[in-house]
Design a protein around this nucleic acid. Structure first.
Lengths: 231, 231
DNA sequence: AAAATTCATTTGTAGGACAAATATAATGAT
DNA sequence: ATCATTATATTTGTCCTACAAATGAATTTT
C-alpha cells in the first residue's frame, strides 16, 4: 500500500525540465477537462507560461504526440486527440531490451488470457468463425506436433473470435515475446516439438458442439505443456 | 491478414522528421544488436549522420527516454536502458481521452483476466496470502453489497497472489478504467449496489479449501453481474 | 609518483531565424 | 453591395548558434 503511493514519487533532482513540462501539460489537460478535438494554446504561449524555452515544450509535446494524445496540424495549431490504448505498449515491446522478469510475466500473461476467454468464445462464436477455425485446423497435417505458425494461426483466430479488438491486438504483441521466452526455455529449434494430448482439432470440436466447462478443461490440458515449465 | 500488414504502413507524407528519426533510431538500435548498458553516439553525431538538426534528434530521443528505452547521463553520454513493459500503457491510460471502443475492451479484459488466474492462485497461494485475504474479507461488514474500495482490495489481493508483478500492475491500471465504464453503464453512485450471489467470503473459502474448478465456477458467478451487461 | 590543475566532451536549456501553408483581413472589381 | 483577389498574420517544423555545468581525461606542478 505505502509502496504503491511511493511509486508516483520520482527522484525530483533527476527530473529534467522536459520531464516536468510533460507532467505539467498532462495535469493541465486533465484539470482543464480537455476532450478530444479541443484545441490547445500554441507552443510559444505554453513556453512563456511555463517559463521555459520553446525547445523544452516541443520535446514534451513530441512525447505526447508519439502516444497519440495530441495532434499537431502544421500551421493550424494543436488539438487533443484520442490515443490508442496499446500504442505505448507497442512502442516498448522489444524482447531484446525487456528484463527477464518482464519477459517471464508476459509469458504467464498469455496463459492467463487463454484460460480466461472461454466464456467470450462461447457467447460470441458464429457459424463463419467456426468454419474458418475448421479450415485452420484442417490445414495442420500432423495434429500432435504443430509449427509455430500453425500455433499462432489457431490461437490467433480464437482471440479474434472474442470480438475484442484490443484483446486481439494484445495477443499479436504478446505472441512474439511469448515465443521468444518459450524457445529460450527449451531449445533453439523453430518447431514446438512437444506432442500435445489435446489437439487443436479437439478444441475446435468442443467449441463447436461442447460446453464452456469442457472447453476450459481441454484448454488447460492443451496449455499444460507450457504451464509445466513454470508453475 | 492483409490489413495487418498495412497497419505498419503509415501515411508517409504526414511523417515529420522527428517521426522518421525515431523510426531510424529504433531500427538502428535493434539492427546493431544494442543491449542495455551499451552506450550510444552523441547527439551531434546522430544529427550529422541523419542529416537533420540536433533539435529533431533530441525530440526523437526525448520520446525514447520517456519510455525508458534510453537513459541520458548529463555530460556523460547516453546508454541503452531496460524499459518497463507497462510504462507506455501507464502514460496513455486516461479514461477521459480513450475511445468508447477502447474503454469497452478494457472492461472486458478485466473479466477475461479474472477468469484466467485460477490456476495461478491455487499453484502459488501461501498461508500468509490466505490470512491477509481473510482479513480483507472480514473487514467487509455487508457481505452482499461491497463498496468500490472493498472490491478493489479483495480482487487486488488476488492479482497480487498470482506472483506476477506485471499482472498486478496491469490490474492497477485497468481497475480505474473498469470502474469508470461500469459506473457509466449503471449509475453515478459510488456503491456497487447489486447484491452478489457469490460473496468474497465464498471465494476466499473455496480458495482455501476447495478446488480450482470450484473456484472458477464461483468466480464466474461472482463476475456474472458484470458479464450480464455486455455478453 | 602523487596531487593539483587545466581542458575537452556532452547533455540540457535558451533564444533567434525562417519556410510554408492556412485562416483571416484588406483590397479591388463588377 | 457582393464577390473575387490579394495581402497579412499565425503557427508548426526545422535549423542554427550559444553557453552552463559536470564529468573524465590530459597536463602540469610539486
Amino acid at each position: 500500500m505505502t509502496t504503491n503511493k511511493l511509486d508516483t514519487l520520482e527522484p525530483l533532482g533527476s527530473l529534467s525540465m522536459t520531464d516536468r513540462v510533460e507532467n505539467s501539460l498532462r495535469l493541465y489537460f486533465t484539470e482543464s477537462g480537455f476532450k478530444p478535438g479541443d484545441s490547445l494554446p500554441n507552443e510559444q504561449e505554453m513556453a512563456q507560461k511555463l517559463n521555459v524555452s520553446r525547445n523544452v515544450v516541443r520535446e514534451a509535446l513530441s512525447r505526447l504526440r508519439m502516444l497519440g494524445m495530441i495532434e499537431a496540424r502544421p500551421r493550424r495549431g494543436m488539438v487533443i486527440a484520442q490515443p490508442d490504448l496499446l500504442v505505448g505498449l507497442e512502442k516498448v515491446m522489444n524482447p531484446s531490451l525487456l528484463s527477464q522478469d518482464n519477459l517471464k510475466d508476459v509469458f504467464e500473461l498469455r496463459l492467463i488470457l487463454e484460460m480466461g476467454i472461454a466464456e467470450f468464445l462461447f457467447a460470441r462464436k458464429t457459424e463463419q468463425d467456426l468454419n474458418e477455425l475448421e479450415a485452420i485446423v484442417a490445414s495442420q497435417n500432423d495434429a500432435t506436433v504443430v509449427s509455430k505458425e500453425e500455433e499462432i494461426a489457431f490461437h490467433g483466430k480464437l482471440y479474434e473470435m472474442t470480438g475484442n479488438d484490443t484483446f486481439k491486438r494484445f495477443q499479436t504483441l504478446l505472441m512474439p515475446t511469448f515465443d521468444h521466452v518459450f524457445t529460450g526455455y527449451y531449445n533453439q529449434s523453430k518447431k514446438i516439438e512437444i506432442p500435445n494430448p489435446v489437439t487443436h482439432y479437439d478444441l475446435f470440436k468442443i467449441l463447436k458442439t461442447g460446453t464452456v466447462e469442457e472447453f476450459r478443461k481441454a484448454m488447460y490440458t492443451h496449455l499444460a505443456v507450457y504451464f509445466a515449465s513454470i508453475l
